[in-house]
């Protein structure tokens, strides 16, 4: 798994460190570092808890999200 952290965005709150059951992240010098990316199973609960949306997972399977309204989906695409 290729996990990247936007170090400018990361506020070093450590919520991803706390949240991940597989200990993928560690806090180093107030920035989250993915130290065990191969332990990531791609649940993305870290994305949900990150206040700065600083995390990026590449090469991941994106689960279906049919529960998002078409109306909301369209609005999301139009926010610039």
């Amino acid at each position: 798994m290729d996990i990247r952290v936007d170090t400018d965005a990361c506020v070093g709150c450590g919520l991803c460190v706390k949240d991940c059951p597989m200990h993928v992240y560690e806090l180093q010098n107030n920035v989250s570092v993915p130290v065990r990316p191969n332990n990531c199973m791609g649940c993305l609960s870290c994305h949900e808890i990150c206040p700065a949306q600083a995390l990026e997972h590449r090469g991941i399977y994106a689960a279906r999200r049919h529960y998002i309204d078409i109306k909301v989906c369209e609005m999301l695409k139009k926010v610039i």
Binding site: D6, D8, A9, V11, G12, C13, G14, N30, P51, A52, Q53, A54, V79
Partner: peptide, 12 residues
């Protein structure tokens, strides 16, 4: 397209 925190220069 990130949140305000991403643009903020504070640390926790």
């Amino acid at each position: 397209r990130k949140s305000v925190c991403a643009e903020c220069d504070r640390i926790m």
